[in-house]
Design a protein around this nucleic acid. Sequence first.
DNA 1: ATATTTGCAAAACGTTTGCATACGG
DNA 2: CCGTATGCAAACGTTTTGCAAATAT
Lengths: 140, 140
Amino acid sequence: MNVQEAMQRLKEKGFKHTDKREDMLELFSNEKRYLAAKDVLESMQDKYKGLSFDTIYRNLSVFTELGILESTELDGEKKFRFTCSTDHHHHHLICLDCGKTKHIDECPMDLFPVKKEGFHIVGHKFEVYGYCEQCEVQRP
Amino acid sequence: MNVQEAMQRLKEKGFKHTDKREDMLELFSNEKRYLAAKDVLESMQDKYKGLSFDTIYRNLSVFTELGILESTELDGEKKFRFTCSTDHHHHHLICLDCGKTKHIDECPMDLFPVKKEGFHIVGHKFEVYGYCEQCEVQRP
DNA sequence: ATATTTGCAAAACGTTTGCATACGG
DNA sequence: CCGTATGCAAACGTTTTGCAAATAT
C-alpha cells in the first residue's frame, strides 16, 4: 500500500481527490508510525491555515474504513498508521513516545490454544510497549 | 485480595473508611468482571441518591494506585476489575458485552522472544475479545 | 481538631454532529 | 450541475478539577 494505491482506492469507492487527503496520506506514508489526530493537524496546519479537527477526523475514519490506515488506542487516544503492506498477520512493538513501531511476526493466537469454553472469540490485541533509542535518551 | 484486605490496605495508606468505598469494593468483589465508571454509578445510585461521578472516579483512581483494582481500556472507556488474586502473571479473555473474563495462563512474552533491537521495553498487552454464552445469544 | 472525602459546578479532553458553503468530477 | 468535502459552531461522552461543606478518625 502506498499513497497512489490509497488514492486509487478512494476514487474507486466514490470519494473525491483533495489535496488535504493526499497530504494526509503522504504524512502517514512518510512517518510509518502511529499518529494521533492532533499530530496530523500539527503537521498540516502550516500549509492549510483553516484546517480543523473535523476534517482530520472525518478523513481518518474514511481511511480506516477502507483499510488504508489501521488504528489502535493508546493512552486514551486513537492513533493511526499506514496499514502495513505485509500480508502476514502480525503485531507491533510500539514506542510510547513517538509512535514508531517494529513488527512482531509471531502471533500468540497461533502459538498456544486459548481455551474458549463458551466464548465466541472475535478478536485479540497483542502489543508490546517501550521507548525507541531516540526517545529513550531524551526521556524525562 | 478480598474486600477486607482492600479496606485494610486503604487504612494502612491513610485513607479513610467510608461506606461508599466499601460498597464499591463489594461490587467489584461480587462481579469479578470489568466495569466502567457508569456501571458502578448505576449499581450504587439506588442506595446513594446524590452519588456522582467525581466520587466514583476518585475512588477508582485510589483503588488502582493501591493495586486493589486493575484497569484496561476498551472501546474508549476505562474499565476496572478486582485485581486477580492469582500471583501468576496472566492475561484475560474478555466479553465485549458484559466485561466477564476468563484467565489465559500463558503469556506471549514467555513463549517467544520479542526482538527488542534498541527498544527499551516497559510493558505489553495481550487480550482476547469475544462474547460469553449469555451475551452471545442476545446479541443484536 | 484536622485531614480526608464528598457533591456541586464547571471545565477539560478527544471526538462527533448538523448545517451552510465551497469545491471536485 | 450534482454530490462530496470542508469549516464553523456546537454538542457529545468520559474524565478531571477547584472549591466549600460534610464526615471520619
